[in-house]
Design a protein around this nucleic acid. Sequence first.
DNA 1: TATTCCGTTGACGTGAACGTAAAGCAAGAT
DNA 2: ATCTTGCTTTACGTTCACGTCAACGGAATA
Lengths: 143, 143
Amino acid sequence: MSRTYTIRELTREFSVTARTLRFYEQEGLLSPSRRGQARIYSGRDRARLTLILRGRRVGFSLAEMREILDLYTPGDGGMAQLAHSRDKFVQRIDALERQRRDIDESLAELKLGLEAIDHRLAEHQETARPSPRAIGFGMIPAD
Amino acid sequence: MSRTYTIRELTREFSVTARTLRFYEQEGLLSPSRRGQARIYSGRDRARLTLILRGRRVGFSLAEMREILDLYTPGDGGMAQLAHSRDKFVQRIDALERQRRDIDESLAELKLGLEAIDHRLAEHQETARPSPRAIGFGMIPAD
DNA sequence: TATTCCGTTGACGTGAACGTAAAGCAAGAT
DNA sequence: ATCTTGCTTTACGTTCACGTCAACGGAATA
C-alpha cells in the first residue's frame, strides 16, 4: 500500500490552496478516495497534480488538462479511439512546440532590451551625460 | 511618413477582433492617433501589437505586457529608474526561462505518451489481441 | 436621397479559475 | 465537557479578457 497524502500536505508541497484541489476534483481532474468524508490522495493523484500544475504554467486550461489526463488512462474504446488519442497527442505537441518558439522569440527580444539597458548604464558610468543616440531601445520604432 | 493601418487591417493581419484592439487601447497598451474619430494605427502600434500578442501566447497578462512595453519606452526617470527597469527585464527573462523548462518537460512527457500509443498501435498491427502489459501508459502510476 | 459600409462609444454579459465567507462535523487536547 | 484544529459542503463574489448588443456618425455608392 503506497503512500497517501492529506489535502494539507499537497497544498504545502505544491503551494496551492485546498480550495484549488477541491475545485480540480469538482472539475474531474482529481478523484481522491475518502476516509469518512476527508479526502485522501494517492500517489497517482499526486502525479496527476504535478502534470496539471505544469500544464497550467504553460498555459493549458483545466479543460485541456483534463482531456490530456484522460488520454493517459486509456478508455475502453478500440483502435479507432486509440488513433484518435494519438491525434490529440500530436496536436498538443505541436501547440507546445509553437509556444516554445514564441518563448524563444520573446526571450531574444527581452535580452536585446537588457543589453540596451546595460549599454546605457555602462555609458553613464563613463560619461556623466547621456548620449541622445541612446534614447529609445531600438526594437520598437519611434515612428 | 511611414505606413499606417486601419483597425480592420490589423484585425485581419493578426486575427483579433476590433473589440480586442479597442480594449487594448482602453487598457493603455496601444494609443493609435485619430483621423476624426476613427483610429489610425502607426507602425509602432503594429510592432507593439506583435509583442502583446506574442506575450499573450506565452502566458503574460495584459498588465504584465503593459509593464514590459512601458519599459521599452524609457521614461524621464534617471539612472535609478533605469536600474529598476533592468531588474524587471531580468525577472521577465527568468520567468520565461522557467517556462521554457516547463514546456520541455511537458513535451518530453507527451512524447513518451505518443510513443506508448504508437507501440500499442504497432502491436495491434502484428497480433490481433492486445497484451495486458501494454495497458496504462506508464507515466502515471496505477497505484 | 436612401442605402450600405465601416467605424464609433457605452453598457452589460460571459467563461475560466479560483477566492471568500458561513456553517457544520469529527477527533484529539486541556 | 468544552475548545481548538482540520476538514467538509454550499453558495455567492471576483478578476481577467474579452463578447455582444444597441444606438449612432460619417463617407461613398446606387
